[in-house]
Design a protein around this nucleic acid. Structure first.
Length: 449
DNA sequence: CCTCCACCGGAACGTGAGGAGT
DNA sequence: ACTCCTCACGTTCCGGTGGAGG
């Protein structure tokens, strides 16, 4: 976030000093801002009565000491992992469950307890968490693993620029220096880009003498093992644990427990927790969503200086979360994909103007995109590539793209904007292409009119 | 019933940036 | 300078696909 006023300050002062004359930058107006507003900038905020005691407790990254309604899964995990304390390799586990059902939290909790217990009884047990979304190749996984065991005092460095088999060999030698158990947690294991990685990792114990390794794979996708090699599949899923979605009542429990620790008493109206829970339960019982909703509701109430949070704040929070998400997604898109969003915007505006309620189709959208690209002096990408962008925008929830057959007139995708047009236009207001495309929209419309 | 359109979407491949060892 | 790798981004090719229309 860049504060526009601060950029103005910078540009003004540099402008003055760049004239070449030895003039001191005029800072009188800065003083004015200081004295008149900045001095009191935080006063009002500080005067507001905070509703939080400990905001962190409602953060999705906070891992509480207990996880309500996950006792059974935690016990199961602990039973399977217990052999690690005798330096035996526990069975490999696959943990399934939708986002926000406590998979990662439960495993982190059990992992920490396992490491603590190991220290207590004088054994070496390490639990290493790797997110395959960011570390999706064998090479990177090996590097991450190796880094955990590199002796800080030695000169060993992470290896880059070596053949993968050499990195594998070096990682093994680092792992195998002493008797220990290592549990590798592969979060979002379905994002792993190489099947060979799983093959090697599940057979790693054959190449080790002192260390025992076992794998915990976490996946949202129940079918992710389907395309895998049968040997990998059986070795990876020796044990399977499924985390079912929380229902609304369980979500209420979670929210109550957390808010008791996070908030001052009597801050929440009675309907708030049931409403947050119900809204999150609609989306596959996602506790993260429920917590976000509650936290943002409280923040909104706090900002409005309200003494209690009501359903009104929850609704506002729900809107805000969705708007922020869409805006963030669109702003972070690469230029070509944003040009496609502009094409959608222009077509949607045109259709609305013409009173034409029908959805866009791929061919139509591609032509509009190509025209817009040329206007801003970009080379339009191939239709194949743009088809992938359309799928991506669909999965991001910005549009809905449905494959339909128009019979003799071919197969296409019917594309509908899922964000209100005015909101999309608002989001694109400060986009780098908007100004240049402003007149095109008009030209296009008059031409088509 | 068959044809055929306008795409879909998988597969294979190319390119170039970037990082670090040799 | 070269090697060995990842990774992002893109293209071309081509076998489907499903229903309107002949």
């Amino acid at each position: 976030m860049i504060d526009p006023s601060s950029t103005k300050l910078v540009s003004k002062t540099t402008e003055q000093s760049s004239t070449g004359e030895s003039v001191q930058p005029d800072i009188s107006y800065i003083k004015r801002i200081d004295e008149q507003s900045l001095m009191h900038l935080f006063d009002g905020i500080l005067k507001k009565k905070p509703l939080f005691i400990d905001r962190e407790r409602l953060s999705t990254s906070y891992i509480p000491a207990t996880l309500p309604h996950r006792e059974q899964e935690i016990t199961e995990l602990a039973n399977i992992l217990a052999p690690a304390l005798d330096l035996n390799a526990p069975s490999n586990i696959i943990v399934y469950g939708k986002p926000g059902v406590g998979k990662t939290a439960a495993i982190t909790l059990v992992g920490k307890e396992l490491e603590r217990k190991a220290i207590e009884i004088g054994k070496r047990v390490s639990v290493i968490h790797i997110n395959c979304q960011y570390t999706g190749t064998l090479y990177r996984i090996l590097n991450t693993l190796a880094q955990q065991f590199i002796d800080n005092l030695s000169n060993d460095r992470p290896f880059i620029g070596l053949p993968t088999d050499e990195v594998y060999a070096k990682t093994l030698s680092l792992l195998d220096t002493t008797n220990r158990a290592v549990i590798i947690v592969l979060d979002e294991i379905d994002k792993l880009k190489e099947d060979t990685a799983l093959y090697l990792l599940t057979r790693i114990n054959n190449d080790l003498h002192n260390t025992k390794v076992s794998i915990i794979g976490i996946s949202n996708n129940l079918c992710f093992t389907d395309p895998l090699d049968a040997r990998v599949k059986s070795s990876l899923s020796q044990e399977t644990i499924v985390f079912n979605p929380y229902n609304a009542e369980q979500l209420q429990d979670i929210l109550r427990t957390r808010s008791q620790q996070a908030l001052k008493p009597d801050v929440l109206s009675v309907e708030v927790i049931p409403l947050c829970a119900a809204l999150a339960a609609q989306e596959h019982g996602d506790a993260r969503k429920a917590l976000d909703l509650l936290r943002v509701s409280i923040e909104i109430a706090e900002r409005k200086c309200d003494h209690a949070v009501s359903s009104k704040h929850v609704r506002l929070a729900q809107n805000k979360i969705e708007k922020d998400r869409i805006a963030e997604v669109i702003h972070s898109l690469p230029a070509q994909e944003r040009l496609l969003v502009h094409a959608i915007r222009v077509l949607q505006r045109y259709n609305k103007h013409m009173g034409n309620p029908s959805a866009m189709i791929t061919g139509e959208l591609y032509s509009q995109y190509a025209e817009i690209s040329k206007t801003v002096h970009y080379t339009p990408l191939s239709q194949r590539r743009v088809a992938d962008f359309i799928s991506e925008l669909d999965s991001l929830g910005i549009i809905s793209a449905k494959v339909i057959s128009k019979g003799r007139y071919g197969t296409t995708r019917e594309i509908q904007l899922m964000v209100p047009l005015t909101e999309l236009e608002h989001i694109l207001q400060d986009d780098e292409f908007t100004e240049e495309l402003g007149h095109i929209k008009m030209k296009n419309q008059t031409k088509l009119l």
